[in-house]
């Protein structure tokens, strides 16, 4: 019996990835050399990068210029295909929450800089809604409704992230029109962590035509010890069972370059949802960086998914939603 780590199967997976377009729907890494190197080594064609600071003075603009031979900023699906054709990795810009100090007039400028997807709330309540670890979760605020409307007006993807509370998430689905995504989460049915998502909410997202990305953050897969690739793939199977093969993608949520040391803030990152020392913020076996992405493809092959389904899961579902929302 073959195994995702089996060299022959891995070679098959790499060959398949060369035929399809592989998309990581959410990355939390700092853009750095290691990210560039491992994205290329792992056969990832498009990376949606979290850039909390999208301002004109952010150093990442220069980083993108300095790495123009390897990276291309993209704002359209056509741009992603063009990057692929040029042998470069496409990079999209996203936020995990809308941080404009309640001044939505700033959004147009950030859209111009390249913002194409945004979360709303990060774990704890803000001006927009409540977070997944809040003691008393509630719906979107008045302002939160305006935020969703403003994002949609600009054709920026609305991402409930996995960091919103369930109540706020359902409210977003109520307010938003068209596909809504959850860029990085894991099934609550298999891992009891407030950061994970109920089957019902995954179905509701699928009903909008959206995508749910699976995260590779170890603690969202297992409570203790190192999560195996098998345990991760079991979660992926479950999400596909629940939401359907057209509505699941990967959103691995690596934090390369941001993996600090020492204690975390227990208010925004409480112990029931996150390990309390950054040293313990580890990833599923083989998925600590992007070089392991073919392991996922190999795992799907091993589990008997048809190549056209693997193509959807590994990228085409994201591209479908982005094409619809971005309007290209």
């Amino acid at each position: 019996m073959s195994h995702p780590f089996d060299p022959a199967l891995l070679a098959e997976a790499r060959a398949l990835q060369d035929d399809i377009l592989v998309v990581n729907g959410l990355d939390a890494s700092l853009l750095n050399e290691e990210v560039v190197r491992t994205l290329k080594a792992g056969g990832v064609h498009m990376n949606m990068s979290t850039l909390p600071d999208l301002s004109l003075s952010s150093p990442f603009h220069q980083f993108m210029l300095d790495h123009a031979d390897d990276l291309v900023p993209v704002t359209t699906v056509a741009g992603i295909h063009a990057a692929r054709a040029a042998g470069k990795v496409a990079v999209g810009y996203c936020w995990q929450w809308v941080d404009v100090d309640e001044d939505l007039s700033q959004l147009a400028g950030y859209h111009r800089i390249g913002l194409r997807s945004s979360g709303l709330v990060y774990n704890v309540g803000n001006y927009i809604g409540s977070g997944c670890v809040d003691p008393n979760p509630g719906p979107l605020s008045h302002y939160g409704i305006q935020v969703v409307e403003a994002l949609q007006e600009l054709r920026i993807v609305v991402d409930i992230g996995g960091h919103c509370s369930e109540a706020t998430s359902y409210d977003v689905l109520e307010v938003a029109e068209g596909p809504v995504v959850c860029s990085h989460t894991n099934p609550l049915a298999l891992r009891d962590n407030p950061r994970c998502m109920t089957d019902g909410l995954m179905r509701a997202i699928a009903d909008t035509g959206g995508v749910i990305g699976i995260a590779a953050f170890n603690f969202f897969v297992v409570r203790e010890g190192q999560a195996t690739l098998e345990e991760f793939l079991r979660q992926l199977d479950h999400m596909i069972d629940v939401a359907g093969v057209d509505h699941v993608g990967i959103g691995l949520d690596q934090i390369i370059g941001r993996n600090d040391r020492g204690p975390v803030n227990p208010v925004t990152l409480p112990p029931e949802a996150y390990p309390q020392r950054y040293e313990d913020w580890i990833y599923v076996e083989g998925l600590h960086d992007f070089t392991g992405v073919p392991l996922i493809t190999a795992g799907l092959l091993e589990r008997g998914y048809a190549p056209e389904d693997i193509e959807k899961i590994m990228g085409a579902n994201w591209l479908r939603v982005w094409a619809e929302v971005w309007g290209d």
Partner: peptide, 24 residues
Amino acid sequence: LWKMPYGDGAFERSDQGLTATGRL
């Protein structure tokens, strides 16, 4: 009068109580 990282305002759609940050 509206929602804040600490809790809800009197004019909000919800009446959710203080958040952990609000208590701090």
